[in-house]
Amino acid sequence: MKKIILSTLVVFSLASCKKESQKNEEGVATTDSTTILNKTEAAKVELKEISQQNLVENLSKKNDTLYVTNFFATWCGPCMMEIPHFKKKIEELKGKPVKFTFVDILDKAAWKDKVPAFARENNLENHIVLVDESKFDDTFFGNFKTWKGNGIPFTHFRKGDKTEEVEGSMSEEMLNEKINSLLK
């Protein structure tokens, strides 16, 4: 008899440990506090949507600052592979005349939740802008030597009159090489 009671208690205990979605005594579904906290934190991040014209102005600044503009999407594996390299360079070059901007152009549906959550998780809230690619006119891709919008990630570097472009994911070494060559 003791074994049956003990077995029943163990089964009941394990069943009550379910974390994600439980029903309380009134039969109302509840969620755990971490789910609520994560949604609240992501909602607090407000990313700025800019126009094609503002983006072009940022891409064409010709001064002593190095502008590194990376076009990405949160669903893009190669984009996500290079993000740690960029984060490391942002930290390394803090206080130097270098400005990093990440442009999400492809997944407007993710702008409300996925992109803000990504920005918060990676401490990139002040570096990400949103641009609606459906509003690009034919002149937009004329700002680049090689890129026609057919692949991401794509990174555009500009310092003064010097520009560099990389289509595809960059290794940490390649990113360092591009930045160092333009900072000379």
Rank of each mutant, 00 (worst) to 15 (best):
A43T: 12
T69Y: 05
F72L: 04
T34G: 07
N63C: 03
N58I: 09
T74I: 10
V68Q: 02
A43P: 08
N58H: 10
K44D: 11
L55F: 09
T35I: 07
V45L: 05
A73M: 06
T69A: 07
V56Q: 01
Q53M: 11
N63K: 04
T74K: 05
T74C: 03
Q53E: 14
E57P: 05
K44P: 04
L47I: 11
E46I: 11
I36F: 13
S51H: 01
T34Y: 15
K48E: 14
T34E: 15
K61Q: 12
L37K: 15
K48W: 09
Y67G: 07
T40H: 13
I50A: 03
S60M: 15
N38V: 10
Y67W: 08
N63M: 05
S60L: 13
Y67I: 09
N63W: 02
L66C: 00
T35K: 15
K39T: 10
N54A: 12
I50D: 02
E41M: 10
F72G: 03
T74A: 13
V56S: 02
K62G: 06
E41L: 14
L66A: 00
E46F: 13
S60C: 09
S51C: 03
V56A: 05
T65A: 05
L59Q: 01
E49W: 00
S51Y: 00
Q52K: 04
Q53G: 07
A73K: 05
N38H: 06
D32M: 07
L66R: 00
E57C: 05
K62L: 09
S51M: 04
T74F: 03
T34P: 10
K48L: 12
D64G: 11
L47A: 14
T34W: 10
K61M: 14
I36G: 10
L59D: 00
I50L: 08
L59P: 00
N70M: 02
Q52R: 00
S33G: 13
D64T: 13
T74E: 07
K62M: 13
T65N: 06
A43Y: 12
T34I: 14
N38F: 08
N54Y: 07
T69V: 13
D32F: 06
E49M: 03
V45H: 04
F71G: 12
D64H: 08
N70Q: 02
V68H: 01
I36S: 15
